[in-house]
């Protein structure tokens, strides 16, 4: 299982979305890494990619709204990291379509997404949780 309980921030909406994101990325990786031929799995890969493009943007905006609500001082830096990732996802996706669904591009994307997501949730997002706990707002309604 890719998701770990230690990634939980204690903010119900964000935790639920993180778990969903990890579930989708895991499904994406499993499809990418399966022994099926690229031709057999490319449709599923493309569907997951389209979902993630929408879901990632939605999730980032929810997370940023939460940071704003609790007055998180690292919001601007955090938003910059989100924006860079969205730019990367959109850029790779465009390049992928133009290439006629090149497998190498998607394998590289999957690997980077995996490491980026784990670091972002395990490190960057945990700073938000630490701030919320320090300020005594961690248990406020989302």
């Amino acid at each position: 299982m890719f998701w770990k309980d230690k990634y939980k921030l204690g903010v119900a909406l964000i935790d639920k979305e993180h778990e969903e994101l990890f579930r989708r990325v895991e499904a994406f990786m499993k499809t990418l890494r399966s022994n099926e031929s690229w031709g057999d799995k490319v449709h599923e890969v493309n569907e997951t990619l389209e979902f993630m493009k929408v879901y990632v943007v939605e999730h980032f905006s929810h997370e940023e709204a939460y940071q704003k609500k609790i007055g998180y001082p690292g919001l601007e830096d955090h938003k910059k990291k989100h924006d860079e990732m969205v730019e990367y996802v959109v850029g790779v996706s465009d390049q992928y379509e133009k290439s006629g669904f090149d497998q190498q591009l998607m394998q590289q994307f999957g690997g980077r997404l995996l490491a980026w997501l784990v670091n972002h949730v395990a490190v960057e997002d945990q700073r938000i949780a630490s701030y919320a706990i320090d300020k005594g707002v961690a248990n406020d309604e989302n």
Partner: peptide, 27 residues
Amino acid sequence: IVQILSGMEMDSVDDFVASAVSEIANI
């Protein structure tokens, strides 16, 4: 490293593995 990260078996240093490791170097 990539097995620990993903929870999946990896049998060769292919594009997926190299890209994940590159991102770790970046981090």
